[in-house]
Amino acid sequence: MSNTPKKLNDVRLKRTTAVILLFVVLLALCIVASVLLGSRSFNWADVVTALFDLSSDSYGVSVVRERIPRTLFSIMCGAALGMSGALMQAVTRNPIADPSILGVNTGAALFVVGGLAFLNISSATEYIVLAIVGALLTACLVYGIGSLGRAGATPLKLILAGAATSAALSSLVSAIMIPRSYVMDQFRFWQVGSVGAGSWSHVRLFLPFLVVGFLIAAATAPALNALALGDEVAKGQGVKPGLLRLCAALAGVVLCGAATALAGPISFIGLLAAHLIRLILGPDFRIIIPMSALAGAAILTLADIGGRLLGSPGEIEAGIITAFLGAPILIMLAMRMKVRAL
């Protein structure tokens, strides 16, 4: 009898390890598939030549060489968005938090469009900085509006605040864009959300943001566990709830802002990844955060591959695929939610 908890713990540990292994394998498969498959598929020989025979520049080899950074970029974006979703869910203590649902993407879009129109920005670094600032301000606004009132930030209030803010900001985006056709053209392609443009320079730009975001997220994870039990309990364990929320939210916004700046608004990755992981592995943020990154990377890469195969000979952008994957999950969550909670 006395060793039951230990046994339980053992079972849980085994299960966790198994799931982690499963996701690692899944991601590896995704990487391979993403390099090989597309509107033109290749065999191993092309890949080997592309990787090791630097002098070769046949058509197949150059396509494979293009696909490698694209795959890497989609993994990084997916990881960033997955972690961002997990962090936002932790900070808002809300199962339906996701950068796209909270309107953060639109905030990033507004600042990028504003930068294109008024500041003549051109470098990707400027894109990223502006997007992060926009995302940050929007996140504050949405959370501020959503948490007014007695009950605090309930899921419905947050979502409505996000949707309303999104609507408000997107009319500003249109107002800036409509008289400027050059902005409109750039914006139209950015706005769908795609990892198709991923190149080595994107990867290099994105890496520092991903690393910083991940480090902060990893550092806050144990404290987030305490926070999940309520502010009072967290305080009792020596956690400063306000500071913790600020750090975690900042990490979440940096991650999703940078991803959005480079790839466009890709929705629902955070919702999907964090939910999936929580469902399988339970509520421990020390596991949820890194695993959401893994799951997010796998989901986005899968969405990208799916879009390439479905849209062949062109492609359907990953942002469209993830919207179709994520929206039903949102609807399902809404349907299962207790009426009281709404």
Partner: peptide, 10 residues
């Protein structure tokens, strides 16, 4: 409203 927002996203 939540369901409507989900449908709208799609």
């Amino acid at each position: 409203i939540l369901v409507g927002l989900g449908i709208q996203a799609m």
